[in-house]
Simulated assay, not measured.
Amino acid sequence: MKRTHLPLNGLRVLDAAARHLSFTRAADELAVTPAAVGQQIRALEDTLGVVLFRRTAKGLELTPEGEAGLEGLRAGFLQFEEAVRAMQAGQSSKTLTIAAPRDFTAKWLAPRLAAYGKSDPELRFVLLSADDNLDFTQANLDLAICLAESAGGHEGVALAEGAFVTVGRAGGAPAMIGWPGCPGDEGTESVLRVADAGLAVDAAAAGFGRACVPALLVEADLAAGRVEIVEAAAPSPKGYWLVAPLPQWRQKKVKALVAALTA
């Protein structure tokens, strides 16, 4: 069934004018001029085909037609308010659903989320493994982290300048450890192939060989002395990006998390 177009602005003005029985006081409430209130009422009367107010010696009075619709109108406004509160409930939630590559979650993201969580004991996190085809609607995601050249079709910010560094362990084998997406991976014979850059770092730490991985990913392992740099960092078009569609990006909880992760 086709819905009737509702003149919501005019109905809102009608509600205020009916409560105050004064265009002037209604205008004060709505932060408009009395003339604007009068124009809205006249337009509403034209749309509905009825007279809503009459001026008498005692002042402004509602007509029976105007009186007849008020109860339903006010009940409708209350339902609108409840609907808006329901839609905003997600904004007040302190649960953040984040998708990221598993190796990045383990080596970089998880410790920072743990530290950020201490700022508010009500914060909750749901961590998902990211893939190349992020579906924010299906997964109900708030934010995603991906290794890419840009934010793609989403809003986003880079966590750091894109750079790859080759790491290994003192005395470890000189051969390279391969993983999907590492620079120069195609056509190169590797002493070991693993599923992701994080496993490549762990294999390098175990002495299997050297791994060329995103510089941001290996920061903690370098600081802990598990591996050392054997080739200086080289710029790369790919880096880790925080991304989300515009509606999610605008959420206060997402803005706060992005600020914390990029500080």
Results as ranks from 00 to 15, higher is better:
Asn9Asp: 09
Val258Asn: 00
Gly225Trp: 11
Thr137Cys: 00
Ala68Ser: 15
Leu113Lys: 01
Thr137Leu: 14
Arg3Leu: 15
Ala233Ser: 15
Pro180Leu: 06
Glu67Met: 13
Ala244Trp: 00
Ala263His: 11
Ala99Gln: 10
Ala68Val: 06
Lys255Pro: 05
Ile98Phe: 00
Gly59Lys: 04
Ser22Phe: 05
Met87Thr: 06
Thr188Tyr: 04
Gly69Arg: 12
Trp108His: 12
Trp241Met: 10
Leu78Ile: 06
Pro235Trp: 00
Asp15Lys: 11
Thr166Cys: 08
Ala163Arg: 15
Gly209Tyr: 12
Val254Ala: 00
Leu217Val: 11
Pro245Cys: 09
Glu45Thr: 08
Leu127Trp: 04
Phe164Glu: 13
Ala16Val: 04
Pro111Glu: 07
Leu44Asp: 05
Gly239Ala: 15
Asp196Ala: 07
Lys253Val: 01
Ala200Glu: 12
Asp132Pro: 02
Gly72Ser: 11
Leu159Gln: 10
Val37Trp: 08
Leu8Gly: 02
Leu246His: 12
Leu242His: 07
Glu228Phe: 06
Ala160Phe: 06
Arg124Trp: 09
Leu109Ala: 03
Glu61Ile: 07
Ala223Met: 06
Gly181Lys: 05
Ala200Ile: 11
Glu149Lys: 12
Ala224Tyr: 05
Ala173Lys: 13
Leu11Glu: 07
Phe208Asp: 07
Glu65Leu: 13
Ala263Gly: 14
Thr105Asp: 09
Ala263Gln: 14
Asp142Pro: 00
Glu228Thr: 11
Ala259Ile: 01
Leu78Glu: 14
Glu231Cys: 07
Leu127His: 03
Ala211Asn: 10
Leu216Phe: 06
Gly184His: 05
Leu199Trp: 04
Ala100Leu: 01
Arg74Thr: 07
Thr95Ile: 03
Gln88Arg: 15
Ser190Asn: 09
Arg85Cys: 04
Ala256Tyr: 02
Ala16Pro: 08
Leu222Gln: 12
Leu30Glu: 02
Ala259Glu: 15
Leu159Lys: 05
Gly59Glu: 06
Glu228Lys: 11
Glu71Gly: 07
Leu6Met: 13
Asp120Tyr: 04
Ala68Met: 13
Asp46Ser: 12
Gly198Ile: 04
Gly117Asn: 01
Arg19Ile: 01
Gln91Phe: 07
Gly90Pro: 00
Leu261Ile: 02
Thr63Asp: 03
Ser129Val: 13
Thr105Val: 14
Ser119Trp: 03
Lys252Ser: 08
Gly172Asn: 11
Ala114Asp: 12
Gly239Arg: 15
Glu161Val: 13
Ala43Thr: 04
Ala263Arg: 15
Arg193His: 10
Phe80Pro: 01
Ala26Ile: 01
Leu216Trp: 07
Val50Ser: 10
Arg3Thr: 10
Gly225Ser: 08
Ala114Arg: 10
Leu141Gln: 03
Leu246Tyr: 09
Val167Glu: 09
Ser190Ala: 14
Ala36His: 07
Ala26Pro: 03
Ala68Glu: 12
Pro245Gln: 08
Ala83Phe: 06
Pro180Gln: 04
Leu44Arg: 09
Met1Leu: 10
Ala35Arg: 15
Arg226Met: 03
Leu123Gln: 03
